[in-house]
Design a protein around this nucleic acid. Structure first.
Length: 268
DNA sequence: AACTGAAACAACCGCACAAAG
DNA sequence: CCTTTGTGCGGTTGTTTCAGT
């Protein structure tokens, strides 16, 4: 046969890909990305798989809005280390470099806009007599700028305190990949045991537990994890895992999983 | 109700570095 | 050593969502 030129998928990940990826990472660990990509049958590059894992599927990821504390930390560390996002991310458990980078970007934009405004104001006010001290900005304390932060930017009110976190915005506007289905309102729902939770419920629950038990806060698994073996093969050798894989089948639900190509890969 | 601009998020790209052969 | 391959990082761009008009 002619070697089918394997086309590489790009763009947004779909739910099924996520599940598949989690399953295989669970089996083989999160290091050999090319291998995982190949074996899983995902038409993605190893690089892409890694990115998806690191930024979205990793069980330790904390999601939702940055807390004022985190925001402060980011600002502080950025001024100290510059754009060493991964380094900064290390100091913010549960946050990814990408997330921080994005945050910083929008933060800088805001700041720049503010500065522009200030300049304008200064010009105007200096041409008039004087007086009005533009008190705002210079950021430094507490994240969000007074003007225009969107959504629950925990601010709008300058001193949100910690409660600012209880948020509505929780999922960060992202639809978590789940095996669940959308309800009538379009929200995703996940079945856990025999209860059905909306994604909002899940995140709220997470946030609640985070508030009450900081220690556990570092691990929130994507619901996808419900479908994957927890006592995984993380540390297994390849051979061991091969054996086990013969017995394990990924969770399928009513999603039609393609036959798992690793079979061919392993055997043939 | 429709449109527009901004913010937030997700993903890709290119480069650099490290380990393995 | 040199080459190859895989991984990690930072920059950039594309997409989605939401608020204001």
């Amino acid at each position: 046969m002619k070697m089918e030129k394997e086309e590489v998928r790009k763009g947004p990940w779909i739910e099924q890909e996520d599940v598949q990826l989690v399953f295989y990472v669970n089996l083989f660990g999160d290091r050999r990305w090319d291998f995982v990509a190949k074996v899983s049958g995902l038409k993605r590059t190893g690089k892409s798989c890694r990115l998806r894992w690191v930024n979205y599927l990793h069980p330790d990821l904390k999601r939702g809005k940055m807390t004022p504390n985190e925001e402060r930390l980011v600002v502080e560390l950025q001024s100290k280390w510059g754009n060493r996002w991964s380094k900064i991310a290390q100091k913010l458990p549960g946050r990814t470099d990408n997330e921080i980078k994005n945050y910083w970007r929008t933060h800088m934009r805001k700041k720049a806009q503010e500065r522009k405004k200030m300049m304008k104001n200064k010009k105007v006010s200096s041409s008039q007599s004087s007086s009005s001290t533009t008190s705002s900005s210079s950021f430094s304390n507490s994240s969000s700028t007074p003007n225009s932060p969107r959504l629950g930017d925990s601010a709008s009110a300058p001193a949100p305190g910690i409660e600012g976190e209880r948020s509505f915005y929780d999922t960060g506007g992202v639809e978590l990949p789940t095996l669940g289905e959308k309800n009538k309102t379009g929200d995703l729902e996940v079945e856990v045991g025999n209860k059905v939770y909306s994604m909002d419920d899940l995140w709220k629950e997470f946030e609640f537990s985070e508030e009450n038990c900081p220690l556990t806060s570092q691990t929130v698994a994507s619901p996808i994890w419900d479908y994957c073996p927890t006592d995984s093969l993380w540390c297994m050798s390849e051979e061991e895992s091969k054996m086990l894989m013969m017995q394990q089948q990924p969770p399928v639900g009513d999603h039609h999983f393609q036959p798992f190509p690793f079979y061919n890969y392993m055997i043939g």
